[in-house]
Simulated assay, not measured.
Amino acid sequence: MAISGTGLAAFHAVAQAGGFTKAARARNVSQPTLSAQVRALEEAYGVRLFDRVGRSVKLTPLGQSLQVITARLFAAEDEAEALLAGVRTLSRGHLRIAADSAAHVMPALGRIREKHPGLTFSLTIGNSSDVLTELLNHSADVGVTAKQTSDPRIRSVRLMSDRLVGFLRDDHPFARRDTTPIEAFETQDVVLRERGSITREVFEARLAEAGVRPGHLLEVQTREAVREAVMTGFGIGVIFSSEFREGEGLKSVEITGADLSVAEYAVCLEERRRIPLVRSFMDAVQAD
């Protein structure tokens, strides 16, 4: 049985938009038409791709698996259309970027935008593991991550080195100094990103190497939340040096006695590295 391209396109549109109304608007069709196309696909194979509750929809486990495939399928279709439409001149197009830090990617995007003002961008910020996952799922075209990978599907180019630093409120006892040894973190409360973050992975490894056991550990999901938690008095935060911003009663301190350097990498899928938009990004980040 041949799968209906119309049905797959309708399914993908709804999955991407998170609902039939938004998807119908994006595809410029009526909602009943889109619903009928998805229903026909489900009935043809005797499956359920969405759980429908009122006006909201949620992907079933099978639907989630199918979305991974359709993301690759329609990403390839977009690439073909882009090439045929003349995007190799970079006069127009849309680049999706996943990064573990806005500070590490914005300079490159600024250069690309200045050179090719017709391009548009979307930027997703997550932890280093998320960046690689989005790339492999075709949810992003390119990425910047501190997580090194030997996956042959991914092209990786080393960009720069950064360093982890501590930061704290200016009324913290450590604030009277500019440096502090890693041993001083013994029994100190620490605020860190969630597991999957290179910041956390590297810092916890260095604590273990030094035989240091901190006090309470507060785990948060974003860098902004790390900053807010430190400002509230939950402990010492750890962040990339390039990301720290003075102000709001906060001060950074260099941590000595441990190698806290972290490399950053630009990544793309090996099979897509010659796509003009992708190539332009990889060239731009290496110009930093």
Rank of each mutant, 00 (worst) to 15 (best):
I198T: 12
I198E: 10
T199L: 14
T199R: 09
T199A: 07
T199P: 06
T199C: 09
T199D: 09
T199S: 11
T199Y: 07
R200G: 06
R200Q: 10
E201F: 13
E201Q: 11
V202W: 05
V202C: 05
E204A: 09
E204Y: 09
R206A: 10
L207Y: 04
L207S: 03
A208T: 12
A208F: 12
A208V: 09
A208Y: 11
E209A: 12
E209R: 10
E209N: 07
A210R: 10
A210G: 07
G211Q: 06
G211W: 05
R213W: 08
P214L: 06
P214K: 05
G215D: 11
H216Q: 14
L217P: 02
L217S: 08
L217R: 13
L217T: 13
L218I: 10
L218K: 13
L218V: 12
L218D: 13
E219A: 11
E219T: 15
V220N: 07
V220T: 10
Q221W: 10
Q221M: 13
Q221H: 12
Q221T: 10
T222R: 04
R223N: 15
E224H: 12
E224T: 13
A225E: 15
V226Y: 03
V226K: 01
E228Y: 04
A229Y: 04
V230D: 00
V230C: 04
V230S: 01
M231R: 15
T232A: 15
T232D: 15
T232S: 14
T232M: 13
G233M: 07
G233A: 08
G233C: 07
F234W: 11
F234A: 12
F234Y: 14
F234I: 02
G235E: 00
I236D: 00
I236V: 15
I236Q: 01
G237E: 04
V238I: 15
I239H: 03
S241F: 09
S241W: 08
S242R: 06
F244A: 01
R245S: 09
R245H: 09
E246G: 08
G247T: 02
G247R: 01
G247Y: 02
E248N: 13
G249P: 01
L250H: 00
L250A: 00
K251Q: 05
K251V: 07
V253R: 02
V253K: 01
V253I: 12
E254T: 12
G257F: 05
G257N: 04
G257Y: 05
G257W: 05
G257A: 05
G257L: 04
A258S: 01
A258E: 00
D259M: 08
D259T: 07
L260T: 03
V262S: 01
V262L: 05
A263W: 08
A263G: 07
A263D: 14
E264D: 11
E264G: 11
E264N: 13
E264H: 14
A266S: 08
C268N: 04
C268R: 02
L269W: 03
E270Q: 14
E270K: 11
E271M: 09
R272G: 03
R274H: 15
R274V: 09
I275K: 09
I275F: 13
I275A: 12
I275N: 13
I275L: 11
P276D: 08
L277S: 04
V278K: 07
V278P: 06
V278C: 08
R279N: 11
R279D: 15
S280W: 03
S280I: 03
S280Y: 03
F281Q: 05
F281P: 02
M282A: 01
M282Y: 01
M282E: 03
D283H: 07
D283Y: 04
